[in-house]
Design a protein around this nucleic acid. Structure first.
Lengths: 242, 242
DNA sequence: CACTATAGGACACTGAGTGCCACCCGAGAA
DNA sequence: TTCTCGGGTGGCACTCAGTGTCCTATAGTG
């Protein structure tokens, strides 16, 4: 009787099998890691606690470590998309800053989980390394973007890498401070401020660039596809006048 | 006949059993990884190629990935020792720069191996992550040292982390360029130059500090133990006058 | 209602990493 | 010489992460 089951879903919110398998696995993993340690927890236990089969765990996570982290692969794709979608008129450093704020946002979205995860990660070397590897991928993406938008000639290439490292380091610094504080309020503001302070020191490096704005009384030309939303056009104009 | 055996060692350089097991394991691992890939190589194969038992491999390396890397644990201890042994009179940034040069030195000491290792590491995610984790440990050590020597109050703490990240990033940048170039000549000089360029930009951050040299006509006091070598005293005086 | 795609389950298998015990060998000490 | 002590090693045996393969069940579609 399929119709009955559908009704059941709608009434109780229960979905036969595949509701948020991923979420329950993450929750189970996090609790178990906190309770009895990472090495002492087997994937079987996590799967059992989440009410799924062991094999299913590895359909959602490549390795055991992945279980408790936000979906960095997806987030990284999002970040790259955001960077590449950024208008050539907005300063590259600004785009990178926004990207960093986006990443921070995923942590801020669920402080409970983030704090718990921090507690575990702090104590388990294997998890720390995993997290470091993840952040280093963002760093690579930032550096690549800067090279693409701002030139990849050799004195500058290194600077871009340093800037990317600085942004990621600052992000992590602010994030950790916030997590240690229990995850209350306004992380994003703190990161904005901190990044401003850091990039203020680093920006001058790239200011020989200082975008040749060719002349004073220039004409602003906006080209957009017919279906471009108005707000996006407005945004472009805004950026161009910055 | 112990004396005979001793002679044997001295004549042939051969040591009965524990000749550099570690080195042969590393060599075997590197060659096998290059020839047939990391995942396709089992620890059994490495051990067999090195002429030891599987169990012995894990006595020398915690994990399979460690096999091809320089002894980062030992190097890190050395770095920390060097930092802590640095005179309080030499600028902290200088000590960190020297430490980075020390690390680079271990790569430069055996270019053949370093280049080979680079080839493998470039292609195997697992090895890349391992390397990133290793470098991040140096970064932590640098930041901790700067905090200790230069104050750990909050605006500065972040800057120290950023500087540590910048130094490590620069080190890696120079190292990778050198490795891609086949590992010929003068890496250390290149790193010195690059670090100079980078820290020149970052140094001003900390210059509000500008070491309260308390007064103009100060007295230089050198305290040393009776057995301190003269060159070390001279070095201290040199640093104090810098 | 049947059909297909997709998520999950069952099972077997490889290989990394560990604990344990036995061994060998050089260095003293009796 | 003989005993013993300690460090590096070999040999199992065991756990468990991670993968390949095949099968099942369910949701969505026409």
């Amino acid at each position: 009787m399929p119709p009955e089951k559908v009704l059941l879903h709608e009434r109780t919110g229960y979905v036969p099998a595949r509701r948020d398998v991923r979420r329950s696995l993450t929750a189970a993993a996090l609790d178990l890691f906190l309770a009895q340690g990472f090495d002492e927890t087997t994937v079987d236990q996590i799967a059992e606690a989440a009410g799924v089969a062991r094999r299913t765990f590895f359909r959602h996570f490549k390795v055991k470590e992945d279980a408790i982290f936000p979906d960095h692969d997806a987030m990284l794709r999002e970040i790259v998309a955001h960077l590449e979608a950024a208008s050539p008129l907005v300063p590259p450093l600004t785009a990178v800053t926004e990207a960093a704020l986006m990443v921070l946002g995923t942590y801020a979205a669920d402080p409970e989980t983030s704090v718990k995860r921090y507690e575990v990660t702090r104590r388990v070397p294997s998890l720390r390394e995993h997290e470091i590897a993840a952040t280093s991928r963002y760093q690579r993406a930032f550096a690549a973007f800067l090279n693409e938008r701002d030139g990849a000639a050799e004195p500058r290439r290194l600077r871009h890498e340093v800037i990317a490292a600085a942004v990621v380091t600052t992000h992590n610094h602010v994030l950790r401070a916030w997590l240690r504080g229990g995850g209350t309020d306004d992380v994003r503001d703190r990161l904005s401020e901190a990044l401003y302070g850091i990039l203020e020191g680093l920006g001058p490096w790239l200011d020989d660039r200082d975008r040749p704005r060719d002349g004073e009384d220039d004409v602003l030309v906006v080209v957009a596809r017919r279906d471009t939303p108005l707000w996006k056009i407005a945004q472009e104009i805004e950026a161009a006048r910055g």
